[in-house]
């Protein structure tokens, strides 16, 4: 079953996910949503906390992707079955080690080919360690 997975380090704290989610029920924008981005006082971290099965009442971008995932600009939110989610996570772990751009955006969000910078892509597990 597909679920919403989170890569916390990619969250930039924009709150698009939370803001759109809050509006889905009755068209009113607020802080109250099934995904909340929390902050730890004194720390520069943005942490999305999801309490949702991903089946939006009224998805903004198409029928198949949850709204929060669709509006996320960095790729911090993933909507996949578990094996594919692991694959994507590993793809990002590998990408960020080969190019600093992927500290701030997921490779699948970047429109230009990125595999050129990671010619050793197939040895992904070696790079990030065995699961």
């Amino acid at each position: 079953m597909k679920r919403i997975y989170v890569i916390e380090d990619l969250c930039n704290g924009c709150r698009l996910c939370q803001t759109f989610c809050s509006s889905l029920k009755d068209g009113v924008f607020s802080e109250e949503a099934r995904i909340k981005v929390i902050k730890i006082p004194g720390e520069e971290r943005d942490i999305p906390i999801v309490d949702c099965n991903g089946r939006c009442l009224n998805p903004v971008f198409g029928d198949k992707t949850p709204t929060c995932v669709a509006v996320c600009p960095t790729g911090a939110l993933i909507w996949e079955e578990q094996p594919q989610a692991i694959e994507k996570r590993l793809q990002w772990e590998s990408a960020r080690k080969t190019h600093s751009l992927f500290k701030i955006v997921a490779p699948w969000k970047w429109p230009f080919p990125w595999s050129q910078v990671d010619s050793d892509n197939e040895n992904i597990e070696e790079k990030v360690g065995k699961r």
Binding site: D9, L10, N12, G13, C14, R15, L16, T19, E44, R45, V71, P73, T74, S100, L101, K103, I104, V105, K109
Partner: peptide
């Protein structure tokens, strides 16, 4: 980006990944 950036940041509701960076 290589040496200094620790994290991408954005203003409220920005559709861009990281115009700001820490």
């Amino acid at each position: 980006l290589d040496k200094y950036v620790t994290k991408g940041k954005a203003c409220f509701g920005c559709p861009w990944p990281a115009c700001q960076k820490l």
